[in-house]
């Protein structure tokens, strides 16, 4: 579902109450356009994971606004009823480890999401195969995850994140386990996919070797983001 990317304004998250309360996000502003890949960097404890969990509708923010495409999904409270369906249909996830389902082959790992959304098995598998072909792992379509290399597993994970054509993909340290060459390949693939499917991609990373590949970077520190434009 191509759309207008994702926009967040004044997003806050507080853990705990009273004297022990911790403000993990103190008013985060961020906008990622369709087809754009931005980096989100920051030291440990700066609020990266909290921001990712809020964006992924996994935890409830404490305030602020989130707009996905043209729909306000959060404004002081969630504006969508079914967060599970929101995560399934409109947000793609790529993790530090691929976390593929070990008992499903590559095709079904990718096709599982559309199947969960009610797409018939054959159509879901066709869609999965199309993405696997785009990511050049179609030759491992019937292999189990344990039979793949680390790079292949990460490509399959990217395919899974893209398979429902979400307007936004959240990638949490997707290159951490990879060497430089493969890390750059993954980022190139994310850029290609973002362009092809008009998807906004947010990549959380510590990885110095891929930071130069982003045109825009959000640096988060003490729960506040700062945008950095980079020349290419």
């Amino acid at each position: 579902m191509p759309g207008k990317g994702i926009r967040i304004e004044g997003l806050r998250k507080r853990y705990g109450e009273g004297d022990t309360a911790v403000d993990a996000l103190r008013g985060v502003d961020m906008q990622v356009e369709p087809g754009e890949v931005v980096g989100l960097i920051g030291p440990s404890g700066s609020g990266k994971s909290t921001l990712l969990k809020c964006l992924g509708a996994v935890i409830d923010p404490s305030g602020g606004r989130m707009v996905l495409g043209e729909e306000v999904i959060y404004e002081d409270r969630w504006r969508v009823r079914d967060l599970r369906a929101l995560r399934r249909d409109r947000i793609g996830f790529v993790f530090q480890s691929p976390y593929l389902i070990p008992f499903l082959d590559v095709t079904d790992n990718v096709a599982l999401l559309p199947m969960l959304a009610g797409v018939p098995n054959a159509a879901a598998r066709a869609r999965a195969l199309e993405l696997l072909t785009a990511l050049d792992v179609q030759h491992r379509a019937h292999a189990l995850p344990t039979q793949l290399s680390g790079g292949e597993q990460q490509r399959v994970a990217i395919a899974r994140g893209l398979v429902n054509r979400p307007p936004v993909i959240l990638a949490d340290e997707p290159t951490a386990p990879l060497d430089s060459e493969r890390a750059l390949t993954v980022i190139r693939l994310l850029n290609d996919m973002a362009s092809r499917y008009e998807t906004a991609v947010i990549v959380v990373t510590h990885d110095e070797k891929i930071i130069p590949t982003f045109r825009r970077i959000y640096q988060i520190r003490d729960g506040v983001t700062q945008e950095q434009q980079r020349a290419h």
């Binding site: 599970r84 995560r87 399934r88 996830f93 599982l112 969960l116």
Partner: peptide, 16 residues
């Protein structure tokens, strides 16, 4: 347990 967390994150229903 990790696969279940992933399944829940990507929107798998509890009943599934």
């Amino acid at each position: 347990i990790r696969e279940i967390a992933v399944l829940k994150l990507i929107g798998t229903r509890n009943r599934t």
